[in-house]
């Protein structure tokens, strides 16, 4: 059975995009999402380049679809995403998606990611990156983070570090996200699991470029995540 996401469903979907120094990459991302008919909440995470100006310029083209919030100082992807999650309650949202703004995620996957939410099959979705697309170093780091998520949060998922996730507004009300940095990925999965929110994994495309690879969970971030995971046990 093929299930299509309607125009109305797209209109009630808000895509959260935390953006830190993405001036050179964010515009095509915003345009591709807008063209698909989705709404966006773009959170500028205290960027030191002209990311905010680029977002504003794109908003001129899609004034009703792009909503901008800006953190006055850089607080990390976790806080920027939390801001988006809080901001979404100011709008008439039914489904909330969060994805990266550096172009590593494709807007073509949005339909697939929200399908399980629209059909009622799940209330939360994580977009899973195919292992074969991942560079070796990322692959290894991801395996370690999956294992840590399994040990500390007792959830077994195939991609714990994905930045592409979706949730219904009702389920979002139930979860409590406090992570500052990249821990948000694991924390989202833990909260979904702890609150017994039915969730699904959907395969997504990932576009790796040297720039997108420079960001994300590196060894330093992984170590920070480990410390925070241990802290959360107490």
């Amino acid at each position: 059975m093929s299930f299509e996401v309607s125009k109305e469903d797209k209109k009630s979907t808000y895509v959260i995009l935390p953006a830190y120094n993405e001036a050179t990459r964010i515009q095509p991302v915003l345009e591709s999402i807008a063209e698909k008919g989705y709404n966006m909440i773009v959170v500028n995470d205290g960027s030191s380049d002209n990311t905010l100006d680029v977002i504003k310029q794109t908003k001129q083209k899609y004034p009703d679809q792009i909503h901008i919030f800006s953190l006055i100082i850089n607080r990390g992807v976790g806080v920027a995403t939390q801001t988006g999650f809080d901001a979404v309650f100011q709008f008439d949202a039914k489904y909330v998606v969060s994805m990266d703004s550096d172009g590593q995620h494709s807007a073509d996957d949005l339909d697939n990611v929200i399908k399980p939410l629209v059909s009622g099959e799940a209330q939360a979705v994580i977009g899973v990156r195919p292992l074969k697309d991942m560079p070796m170093s990322r692959n290894f780091a991801n395996a370690v983070m999956n294992l840590l998520t399994r040990i500390f949060y007792r959830v077994n998922v195939s991609d714990s570090q994905t930045g592409f996730r979706a949730i219904t507004i009702d389920a979002l009300r139930k979860i409590d996200i406090n992570a500052r940095g990249y821990l948000i990925s694991s924390e989202f999965i833990r909260e979904v699991n702890d609150n017994n929110i039915p969730f699904a994994e959907v395969p997504i495309k990932t576009i790796y470029t040297p720039e997108t690879q420079a960001k994300g969970t590196n060894v330093k971030e992984a170590f920070k995540i480990l410390i925070q995971m241990i802290k959360h046990q107490f």
């Binding site: 919030f69 953190l71 006055i72 607080r75």
Partner: peptide, 16 residues
């Protein structure tokens, strides 16, 4: 600081 920065951002949506 995070709470404060978030609150400032949330109450000041940037419009055209």
């Amino acid at each position: 600081v995070n709470k404060m920065v978030k609150e400032v951002a949330l109450s000041n949506e940037i419009t055209l």
